[in-house]
């Protein structure tokens, strides 16, 4: 289903979920959970948004049943560690490429995905100051490097 306009801010988190469907279903599950939780705060009243959120909930319930033998899904404290480690791995990969002067689409995408996964961590509670900083940095780096490459400039 196309994401309704009032829920556009969760679109990229849902895309990340799709991209991780087979690669890491636990990450896909929590991306959708974040999207659900955030979507309900954004707009669960208008018929289009409600219909979308009901379908998303159906999807989440099916996923939870399919992943019932994954501790990361049945216990959110384990899920928290799983998503955080994954986000950090993405961040460190991109950061290493950046510091080595290797600028390319993959590392831009990794910075951006890391920032989205740090958003997802809010499902488990308030973000730590460190994660807030990482998220801001990763999001800024993704935009900065993307713009540099688009304009033919070498990022610093």
């Amino acid at each position: 289903m196309a994401v309704p306009v009032p829920l556009r801010s969760i679109q990229h988190h849902l895309r990340t979920a799709q991209e991780h469907e087979t690669r890491d279903p636990v990450v896909a599950y929590y991306c959708r959970l974040y999207a659900m939780q955030t979507g309900m705060k954004l707009d669960s009243k208008t018929p289009e948004c409600r219909k979308f959120l009901v379908k998303l909930m159906d999807q989440l319930e099916v996923m939870k049943k399919e992943l019932c033998d994954h501790e990361s899904v049945t216990q959110e404290i384990v899920g928290n560690a799983h998503v955080e480690n994954y986000a950090l791995k993405m961040f460190l990969y991109a950061d290493n490429e950046d510091r080595s002067g290797r600028f390319h689409k993959n590392m831009i995408k990794s910075f951006y995905t890391a920032s989205l996964l740090l958003d997802v961590l809010s499902v488990f509670g308030e973000l730590s100051d460190e994660n807030i900083q990482h998220r801001k940095y990763a999001r800024w780096k993704a935009t900065y490097i993307h713009n540099c490459l688009k304009n033919g400039e070498t990022p610093q």
Partner: peptide, 27 residues
């Protein structure tokens, strides 16, 4: 019609909140 519509929407929202809470083992 307005109050019935609002009541139905509110019930649907509660159902969604309940399903989310159940999903997260909060109920």
């Amino acid at each position: 019609t307005g109050s019935v519509g609002a009541s139905v929407a509110s019930a649907e929202q509660d159902e969604l909140s309940q399903r989310l809470a159940k999903l997260r083992d909060q109920i």
